[in-house]
């Protein structure tokens, strides 16, 4: 009897501890999504009148524009993720394996610096550097590399640079975690058995770090896919970013129904991509999440 009461009170405590998380999950994630789902399934029949229908989703598939933007967003996000990985790997390796103590803390801080200012300020900073009358084009002219200042803004590579810069830390951290746990003697053993830099990387380091790599890629991909400011400011007239479409539908077109449908499609896209990524890399979701 006493035991039963004890376990009942333990269960109560468990529920109390879980309550904030559950409330958060329910109130701020589940409910709005349910609401969005309902919204996306409405179509306008007259002023202030709506009926159930799939018109919003139909628009997406019949208007090539939206589909193009969708594909473009996914493609650029994938490229940005790959570039971030390429750039973050040596950084994480340096912090995890080649430096100790103060220096590695310093390197971490360097990766963190971009986050001391807001994304807006960061992006505006990039714009000041890259615009035709900005610092870098001016420098290129001074150095005699180009004859006239070139406009570096509003190009896809610029969007990529901005996205990679913004995402770097989110790749470095999980990579660092997984590389740090790699026993140095495994690398030595691989060398000892005749491996060279490339084969050791391919056969030992990458397989060991793959949960971290997958975790980093998922986080960066999601962040990039959902990025709004960097893509729309640096991309200018050609940015064509899917979140921008959603924003436009919600805010400037007052078309919440269309925006909600787009939102759901984006959610679907990212889920499919993450699932495919996990499949391709042979990772389990739970393993990867424990790395993030």
């Amino acid at each position: 009897m006493a035991k039963a009461t004890a376990s009942a009170s333990q269960r109560l405590i468990l529920w109390l501890l879980l309550a904030p998380a559950l409330l958060w999950l329910f109130g701020l994630i589940l409910l709005p999504h349910l609401d969005l789902a309902l919204l996306s399934l409405r179509e306008r029949t007259g002023p202030g009148e709506y009926a159930f229908g799939l018109a919003q989703y139909r628009t997406f598939f019949t208007e090539p524009l939206y589909w193009d933007v969708f594909v473009r967003t996914a493609t650029i996000s994938l490229i940005a993720t790959a570039l971030t990985l390429l750039l973050a790997f040596p950084i994480a390796w340096t912090i995890a394996k080649l430096t100790r103590g103060r220096l590695s803390t310093l390197l971490f801080a360097v990766c963190l610096i971009p986050f001391w200012v807001s994304e807006t300020v960061r992006t505006l900073g990039w714009m000041i550097l890259l615009r035709e009358t900005g610092v870098i084009p001016g420098l290129l002219v001074t150095l005699g590399i180009t004859e006239v200042p070139i406009e570096m803004l509003y190009r896809d590579p610029t969007i990529l640079v901005g996205l990679v810069y913004t995402s770097l830390l989110f790749m470095v951290v999980p990579l660092y975690g997984s590389l740090e746990s790699l026993d140095d003697s495994l690398i030595e053993a691989a060398y000892d058995l005749g491996g060279n830099g490339w084969t050791v990387l391919r056969t030992v380091v990458i397989p060991h770090a793959s949960p971290g790599i997958t975790a980093g890629c998922i986080v960066v991909f999601m962040l990039t896919l959902g990025n709004y400011l960097t893509a729309s400011l640096l991309g200018g007239k050609n940015s064509l970013w899917f979140t921008e479409q959603i924003y436009t539908q919600f805010i400037t077109r007052f078309n919440w129904e269309q925006g909600a449908a787009f939102g759901f499609l984006l959610l679907l896209l990212s889920s499919v991509m993450v699932w495919t990524g996990l499949r391709l890399s042979g990772q389990r979701f739970s393993d990867v999440m424990s790395r993030t």
Partner: peptide, 30 residues
Amino acid sequence: NRRPVNMVFQQLALFPMMSVGENVAYGLAR
């Protein structure tokens, strides 16, 4: 990796990401 010497490490350093057979065949593959 070019020395005619191999080493058995203190913690053995077997590759956990490979099967036993792949561990043994690692040097041959290289």
